[in-house]
């Protein structure tokens, strides 16, 4: 069984995708079509690079340690949120999902 599948066992996680460094989808599981997962992977890849580029500049201008390299990001919507760590991205319910647990698990799985 793919290791990323275990993220789906967490409450509120609807989709999990693993993408390559170029943004192409490697594998994805959950309540979403393959095409939508491809789009989600591409979005997560782009969003990660943008957030990282901005964090790099913040660190450069302020000389403050602790921002880079960024470990992950969360885009919190009204009913759905997107969380990314490394080359993994999850789509989760905004209301009930245990975000702390999800982030910890994403971090753990992203190391494999």
């Amino acid at each position: 069984m793919s290791m990323i599948k275990r993220l789906l066992a967490l409450d509120g996680v609807n989709v999990v995708c693993h993408f390559r460094d170029d943004g192409n989808l490697v594998e994805g599981y959950g309540l979403m079509s393959r095409d939508e997962m491809t789009d989600l992977a591409r979005f997560a890849h782009d969003y990660r690079r943008m957030a990282q580029g901005n964090a790099d500049q913040l660190a450069m201008f302020t000389g403050m340690r602790g921002w880079t390299p960024p470990r992950g990001w969360i885009l919190r919507g009204v009913t759905q949120s997107v969380c990314g760590v490394g080359n993994l991205v999850c789509l989760v319910d905004s209301i009930d999902a245990p975000l702390n647990d999800i982030l910890l698990e994403l971090r753990e799985v992203s190391r494999w």
Binding site: D39, R42, M50, G53, N54, Q57, M60
Partner: peptide, 23 residues
């Protein structure tokens, strides 16, 4: 060096934004 970092970051961003808009 800093100018290169800044310019590269914005170039990456506008290209990704364009890609998202295109999608």
């Amino acid at each position: 060096r800093m100018a290169s970092i800044i310019c590269r970051a914005t170039t990456m961003s506008v290209n990704m934004e364009g890609g998202m808009l295109e999608a």
